[in-house]
Design a protein around this nucleic acid. Structure first.
Lengths: 222, 222, 222, 222
DNA sequence: CATGAATGAGTTTTCATTCAT
DNA sequence: GATGAATGAAAACTCATTCAT
């Protein structure tokens, strides 16, 4: 796990450095590609349209990204890294001892924090959700490199709070499954299915957490 | 609502009739297209590959479906109709009085029944989930023609069981949101994110329902 | 020349007979093809559109006309035959002695008569004018089979009236060229370039003939 | 009218500039397209044949001309502009006072000059004559943008010479109609119907003008 | 670094024609 | 005789990628 953290930190450092080196044109390309990929999907987007919207020549894209797919990966990777970073990077002690005295508080902080992140990065996250299904490059990278560490970390947290008696003694898998699907279900509805409804995010978070905690309460859990 | 039921029944009748008229080759085309669309996505699938896999000439596809998009719509429409049909068609009285004595039982029956349906129609449903984001033809059709009636029906059911005192007196919207996102989150994980894990569906359904009922229990709800 | 007359008479008889045998569907095909060919040109018209407008199955067209080109020839041939028939068929004596006492009168009768014919057969004649340039089948048939006899006949008429002293003793070729181009130029403008202007045909014919006669007058001709 | 002149000058300047920017390949495409369009007609010509004859890849055509129709318009427009330019651009005073002392001389100069132009641009003009009937893009552009200014200019010239007493006081419309149809009829015969005959252009021009002037002479005109 | 003309394999779509029913 | 499903070749057009400038 320590190693995973390190890899991730290195990777993010590398990405940041690469990001700083980016010329203005390169940045325009990325922005244009994000817009167009998220509007029409990767396969239906053409590099020539991206070039046009970025205000560069068609060839310029391929000077920076060998292939169209490399462009896709370059767009999605850093954002996904940053999406899961808080789970992996935060010092366990810190997460569990000082800042969060309860699972409820943990859920609340994570949801509040990630909802802001999602709002800021919605187009890229849309691209990720759409394209993960079709590109083994993305799948390999993320299933093993991201889903697993994320899962392990959350497992620890669950176990910690189970031991503290705050959460029912259900199988950890089940708890993760149900918490994850509730939270992911909320994000999915909030941002993908009905992004145009007027959402009171604070209230929805409260309700979701209340709901999760009811289901996980040790007494009820019996 | 009565009118909605009627429209849906007519539409399903029309689709069934059209289905019966289908040539063998036409059927091959549909099957091949389902496979390929769900494997690579609509935009990345070529009609020539579909023709090859269906064992027909490429021109034959366009004799039956004027455009590639019409082929997509022809594939997705009937399955989606059948997916939501049980919610709309079942006689209210029947649903609420006779067969289901409780919201718990209602959830159980619906989930069991729909999980089977999803298993049988997974490729088409995958296509739907992927493509709905990009095709206004699908969006218009389904948001107004399907999402709305579905929502209305479920609202009635929730209110019915709230009045019976089985569900907490939270705002109906919130209840739907939280129940839907929990159930949809489960389906999404079960079939799209980790379809290859070994799932004990019976147990997962039980857990999900237990979870939902805990969150909605009137006492806890206070 | 006698032989030419005979051939033409036989051909027209054959065409008339064929026309009488035509089924209703066949007639619909011809009418639909005329409309569509003259609207969009032969090459840009599709047999399937013709079938649709004719209310027959696609295969039915090919039961009556082996190829699309045969359909074109079948449409154009009879009308062109009838267009030039009056020049060839009328008994010379009749044309020159009894009915027409002068070249002026000859021009007048021909123009009046043919303008009516053109009005009735405009679409087919449009097709002819458009397509003659591209189809050697049409060219061969019409240049030798129609243009020549027509030319010969008119030559005789010109010579006849030159001998009567009504027309200047210019080379016959030149006279034909100038009369033909004036008359054809008029028809072309009247029916192809500006068919939508309000034309006073009587007056235009008078003017055209006055004009031709001025140019051909023996005195002026000197 | 001044404005029309200016528009035309600007348009011609723009076309010339575009022409200078043309790649060698682009030029090959235009030449190949002219040949093939005029041989078989626009609709019956394929872009693949054009590419082959031009010695370029088929995609190259579409890099320069978004559609096949745009290629057609790009071919026809400049030539038609240049065909009518002498009528619009020449300084009125110059045309009427200095160079041409008579309508006869005006006709002679125009015919001589335009006959040379037509000889040089026959294929493109053939394409124009064939295709104008079917493409509203061409019709709109040319009817309003070319036919009208041309008509107005010629009207002025006719009136000028009528006032000078050289031409009969017939309605201007009629004069234009008859002069135009005679001249156009000549060109049509000379270049489209019998281009393969041996033509003595000088003599034909003389005859045509003699003919027109006879018909328009004020004495005879009465 | 950037350009944009050029490519060629591929895309969706059209269409005249055939043939079993 | 009439149908219309089926075909396969060819149509117009697209697009990721390369490369000389």
């Amino acid at each position: 796990m320590f190693e995973q953290e390190k890899k991730l930190i290195d990777e993010i450092a590398r990405l940041n450095e690469a990001h700083l080196k980016m010329t203005e044109k390169q940045n325009n390309i990325i922005q244009a590609a994000i817009e167009i990929f998220s509007e029409k999907g990767y396969a239906a987007s053409s590099t020539s349209e991206i070039a046009k919207r970025a205000g560069v020549a068609e060839g310029t894209i391929f000077r920076h990204y060998k292939t169209k797919k490399e462009l896709l990966v370059s767009i999605v990777t850093p954002t996904i890294m940053k999406l899961i970073a808080p789970f992996i990077l935060e010092d366990v002690g810190e997460v569990l001892d000082k800042p969060y005295n309860s699972f409820r508080e943990f859920l609340y902080e994570i949801m509040k924090n990630r909802i802001e992140f999602v709002k800021k990065n919605l187009p890229v996250l849309k691209i990720f959700v759409q394209e993960i299904a079709f590109h083994s490059e993305l799948q390999d990278k993320y299933k093993k490199y991201i889903a697993e560490p994320l899962f392990n970390r959350i497992k620890d947290i669950i176990i910690y709070f189970q031991e503290k008696g705050e959460i029912a003694e259900l199988p950890v898998y089940s708890i993760i499954r149900i918490v994850a699907s509730t939270v992911i279900g909320f994000f999915y509805m909030r941002f993908l299915i009905f992004p145009d409804l007027e959402w009171d995010d604070e209230a929805e978070i409260e309700l979701t957490i209340h709901f999760i905690m009811s289901g996980l309460s040790p007494l009820k859990g019996k």
